[in-house]
Design a binder for these strands. Sequence first.
DNA 1: CGTTTCATTGAACCGGATCAATTCTAGTGG
DNA 2: CCACTAGAATTGATCCGGTTCAATGAAACG
Lengths: 184, 184
Amino acid sequence: MKNNNWIEEVIEALSDVVEYRTLAKGETLLAIGDVCNYVGRVDQGIMRMYYSNESNQDISFSFYLPGDVFTNYEGLLKEQVSTMEIQAMTAVRVTLLPKKELFALYESSFHWQKIGRLMSDAMFLHAKERIDFLLFLTPEQRYRYLMREQPQIIQLLSQKDIASYLGIQPQSLSRIKKRLALTN
Amino acid sequence: MKNNNWIEEVIEALSDVVEYRTLAKGETLLAIGDVCNYVGRVDQGIMRMYYSNESNQDISFSFYLPGDVFTNYEGLLKEQVSTMEIQAMTAVRVTLLPKKELFALYESSFHWQKIGRLMSDAMFLHAKERIDFLLFLTPEQRYRYLMREQPQIIQLLSQKDIASYLGIQPQSLSRIKKRLALTN
DNA sequence: CGTTTCATTGAACCGGATCAATTCTAGTGG
DNA sequence: CCACTAGAATTGATCCGGTTCAATGAAACG
């Protein structure tokens, strides 16, 4: 999720409780069944949040590039165990804001309450984008959109991971690429 | 969108600028290209918000039953012209909160700022539900889910409208129903 | 009534899913 | 440096379910 620098302000305000972590490629930050108790910001590397199916055909909800804010916001709000995993796609460095202190900050003043609303608005807009992406575009259109709007994703990640973001199987992505190559 | 009674409190606070409207079945409250400048609450009847395609194959984002809160929140936040329409499915009575006064109320105190955050959180959770619905369920599963969770919708609305919520064509819904009837 | 919209049904089509086999690639250890 | 291995990517064949186009039947409404 993109942010408008309010995250910097929050990190500074919570500087004494902020946690910095480095993760190796493939390492899981939040597993299914855990309760998500932080909001994170990517400093270096790429993270992803995804739904994990029984087989290994998982569906990526979103990727997060440096500067992006990530959290299982639904789990945070509902105090539910997570239905999603958050994982490092590359070697990663992240800044983590503990939920307890973050929400306490919100309660401490009008200003911070407003920051909280802005964060929630940003979460909503991000989710809304994902809806439109899935609802209106065919798999092929999604891939073209991704090539146009987020070429870094395509360059840096495997076919398998890209397919999981498009909501299709790797084989189908392979065929889509072939189709597009022919019609150019 | 379901609410936790914060909407009552807001309506009361804004009672001198609240607008009540009655709409006939089929009437449009917000057209594409309009700027959405209110948050509404359904008093009686059913509303829906939907994306309108060139042909009349539109996609319903959501239906709203009495008590539900509706708004093109994305358009409200981004001050964009709407890409969705909001329409009365039946004879309807709604309460409308003008955006200007609502947002001014948010700025007036810590308490109202917090109410604003809760509203934003609710918008997010609603959008998230819709994502999961579309991402994980096949059209047939979506129909079954709807039968189980929101039977009122199925009873009260036409096949055409239900299909638009499921993200499929009316013909396909017809066949799904037939299939389910056979296997019972 | 008659007209219009909705719902159903049939036939052909299409694209993604699935199962399976093969190739390609990167990383590992001898 | 090469051989081996495991995972990723490609390709083929087949299947399945939703789409599309078209026709018919049913219901709603003036």
